[in-house]
């Protein structure tokens, strides 16, 4: 009897194959599709790069042009949404888009270039404007003065200040 009821079951259900790709397919609200970087919001903080398991995201500095490049290569992306978790500004978000097949390699790259700040002392670009502005809130007031110094110069300056303080100057 098993056979017959299976046959009748399948007749009563009818076709279940979807028309996809000829008809679109719905995905739920929180679907983890292609990540998209909002160029306006990204501050180039590198947290996403540190979190990304397969190194789909890389952030590197182009010192010659003085820009920081946030480079997302979808060919490596595993759609884990870790970048979305860690991004402090919500610049990177996973979209509902999942049809990524393409004929050109370029479609798989997203590149954000952020202008960098040059160090007041040594002239080396060391951080993006946006990141500096973002982090200025968290800095203690006495460090804000040294905002435009690169970490090395800043360290130098701090140690200078400290020696000065030790010398009894009462500057701080």
């Amino acid at each position: 009897m098993g056979r017959l009821s299976l046959i009748s079951k399948s007749i009563s259900i009818g076709k279940v194959t979807e028309k996809y790709p000829f008809a679109p397919i719905e995905v739920p609200e929180d679907f983890r599709g292609k990540p998209k970087i909002d160029t306006e919001k990204c501050i180039g903080c590198t947290s996403c790069m540190n979190a990304c398991p397969p190194r789909a995201l890389e952030v590197y500095d182009d010192l010659e042009r003085g820009v920081r490049v946030v480079h997302l290569f979808l060919g490596r992306c595993i759609f884990c949404a870790r970048c979305q978790d860690v991004c402090p500004t919500g610049a990177i978000k996973l979209t509902k888009e999942f049809e990524l097949a393409t004929l050109s390699d370029e479609d798989l790259h997203q590149i954000v270039e952020l202008q960098m700040v040059r160090c007041e002392e040594c002239g080396k670009p060391f951080d993006t404007f946006r990141h500096l502005l973002y982090s200025v809130k968290e800095l203690p007031p006495w460090q804000r003065e040294m905002l435009f110094l690169c970490p090395e110069c800043r360290a130098k300056k701090v140690s200078e200040l400290l020696t000065f303080a030790k010398g009894g100057g009462g500057y701080v």
């Binding site: 739920p28 759609f79 949404a81």
Partner: peptide
């Protein structure tokens, strides 16, 4: 799975 995790197979 897709509903709960955002993906059909790799739940992450």
């Amino acid at each position: 799975a897709e509903l709960l995790t955002g993906n059909r197979k790799t739940y992450g």
